[in-house]
Write a protein that binds this DNA or RNA. Structure first.
Length: 257
DNA sequence: CTTAATGTTCCCCA
DNA sequence: TTGGGGAACATTAA
């Protein structure tokens, strides 16, 4: 389940390996990996590799390739193709694989950068973040997961961010005081920045572009910690379901009030 | 055997 | 119009 820190780590691990390289040949091995023609990629040069929310964007000399990893997608440089390899990009130096067990991920060839998603968490100002939050009445958890609010957060970081900000996942956004909204903005940036330093969270499938695991899962405070003591107050972490998503929080530190 | 996990989209209901 | 709930998608692990 790659989210922003994982996508960022993958991009950093692949940049020097793919930037400037030409795509010699591209193959899509499964019907559902892409609706586009892989031939359109042949001969293209990778100008820049960038993160777009939790997705990965190949800026080509002509057009773009958008890789959506969803839950089990992997981009792997110079690995052996396996049963879950869904796409192969042969470069003039090396081979890039797109592996995906669940096949929810996709590769899309675009003319220009997508614009439907919300702002990047590192770019949105505190002012704007607070205004957007309080302008509607939804649960905090739902809002953080909404990619049109900010792009890049998933289930793991939503829970970790809310714990850091000491806010209940079911709290309605319009009931946040300004200082608490500002604290959430700060918790978001701090949590993500720290997760990037630790090269992401490897809870199930995630590895970077060279096959290396991250270590931020060792620093998770609430995600999948139900029954374990809160690192602040020792109260047992609780798991509830919010918007069909498993949600982990400390009932003492994160009160609904 | 069933259930949970996971991100996103879509569809229905209040 | 808004928010919430549920299904669907594919696969593995428990």
């Amino acid at each position: 389940m790659p989210e922003l820190p994982e996508a960022e780590t993958i991009v950093r691990s692949l940049q020097r390996l793919v930037q400037g390289r030409h795509i010699v040949k591209a193959d899509f091995l499964s019907r559902r990996v892409s609706g586009d023609s892989p031939q359109a990629l042949a001969g293209r040069r990778v100008v820049q590799l960038r993160r777009y929310g939790k997705k990965i964007l190949f800026e080509l000399d002509q057009g773009l390739l958008l890789v959506d990893l969803r839950m089990t997608g992997r981009l792997l440089m110079n690995h052996v193709p396996g049963p879950y390899t869904r796409a192969v990009l042969r470069l003039d130096d090396g081979v890039l694989l797109f592996d995906d067990i669940r096949q929810f991920g996709s590769l899309r060839i675009l003319e220009k950068e997508p614009e439907s998603a919300g702002p990047d968490p590192f770019e949105i100002s505190c002012e704007r973040f607070c205004d957007c939050l309080r302008g509607r009445s939804r649960r905090l958890k739902t809002t953080l997961l909404d990619q049109s609010f900010v792009r890049g957060l998933g289930n793991i970081y939503a829970d970790e961010i809310l714990f850091r900000a000491r806010l209940h996942p079911m709290l309605k956004t319009d009931r946040l005081t300004r200082p608490r909204a500002a604290a959430l903005h700060e918790a978001m940036r701090e949590t993500l920045a720290e997760a990037i330093v630790y090269r992401g969270s490897s809870v199930s499938d995630y590895v970077d572009g060279t096959g290396q695991k991250g270590s931020f899962q060792l620093r998770h405070e609430v995600y999948r910690k139900q029954g374990q003591p809160c690192p602040i107050c020792q109260t047992a972490i609780r798991r509830i379901v919010v918007g069909q998503r498993g949600t982990h929080f400390c009932p003492h530190c994160q009160r609904l009030r």
